[in-house]
Amino acid sequence: MPECVNKGCGRKFTDPTEPCLHHPGPPIFHEGQKGWQCCKPRVLTFDEFLSIPPCTTGVHSTEAPKPVENAAAKPSPEIAAPTVKDGIETYGSAVSVTKAAAPVAKPPTPAKEKPVVEDDPSIPVPLDSPCKRRGCKAVYKDPKTYNTPCVHHPGVPIFHEGSKGYSCCKRKVLEFDEFLKIEGCKEGRHLFVGALISKEEEELVNCRYDFYQTYSDVIVSIFAKMVGKEKAKIEFRQRELHVDLPMPNNKRFKQTFPLYGPIDAENSTYVVLTTKVEIKLKKADGTSWPTLRSDEATGEIIQIGQPTKM
């Protein structure tokens, strides 16, 4: 059966007219965030990136789109072209040039590989669930699916200076589409359900915060990235602020702030942004706050409107 090459699909099909869910735009990796140009979700981990649901319905395709030529993206003439042997791309050394060689950047340290996770036999597997192991394209049809080999990558993705690959094998490519096609290097058992993470395994983390004030409000910024808007909890009380912010990778910022002054809890508000949570505390008496927390009061008077950092 032919295999669809549309990004986000990759399914084998027999009927070319059946709906194809895919991403028509290219992937975007910027400042640690990952997503697709054609839709808005942005995530931090590569596994979350691969699980972003397709945003467009179209038809299957077996022809890869032609790359758009970009002079800025062409390799430098000072770098030898890669040679391919046994499916492994090897890059030669740079040819001699008269100008001084630039310092070589140290490759980033790859993320720590996680221990192998296996499915719990007591947990039912939904029909048509894809295998969660990197590089495996198997789809669960019945219990016999577990008897088929799971050829996958146990390592983590590594993107460095334009090359793309996995920490568990040597092959490196330049194009993202080619990276998705790198065949697995290890055979094991499929993972259709994955590990269930309990709340006891959550990692409590500290986040930087600061505040500034006006005559009527105290504005607090908590710098926590990619907070889950639906699960974030902010509770306002007259002299306390309770904050509970879940984040990706099972991390959570949870803290209670004893406030320096009383607030109007009913008229206090907050908004969850991509890189921070901004909280507006409505003052109950209009006095100046020298600190945000009552347990850090020093007697110093801070001018209203000037920010102070914690």
Rank of each mutant, 00 (worst) to 15 (best):
F192D: 10
I219Q: 07
K251E: 07
V243H: 10
K141G: 12
E175S: 10
G155Q: 05
P149K: 00
R208T: 10
Y215C: 02
D264P: 00
L204G: 01
C136E: 11
V139N: 08
S216V: 14
K170I: 04
V271P: 02
S268T: 14
C207D: 03
K254Y: 06
E187A: 11
G165Q: 15
K137P: 00
K251T: 13
C169Y: 03
P154L: 01
V220F: 03
V243N: 10
C168I: 14
K254R: 12
G135Q: 07
A138I: 02
S221N: 12
E178K: 12
N147M: 02
L204M: 01
L245N: 11
K231R: 12
V173T: 03
E278R: 11
I222C: 06
Y215G: 07
V218P: 06
F253R: 05
K254F: 08
Y215E: 12
F223R: 08
K172W: 04
N206D: 14
G194Y: 08
L180E: 14
T274G: 10
G194H: 07
F257I: 01
H152R: 03
A195S: 11
A224K: 08
S216M: 02
K170L: 12
E161D: 13
E183K: 15
G135T: 09
V218H: 02
F211K: 07
F223A: 05
D264E: 06
Y270F: 15
F211Q: 08
I158N: 11
Q255D: 09
K199I: 08
C136A: 05
L191F: 10
P258S: 06
V243I: 05
R239C: 02
R237S: 09
E278H: 02
K164N: 13
Y260K: 01
L180C: 12
K181E: 15
V218L: 00
V151Q: 10
C169K: 13
C136D: 09
P246K: 03
Y260Q: 07
I219C: 04
L245T: 06
E200W: 03
Y212H: 13
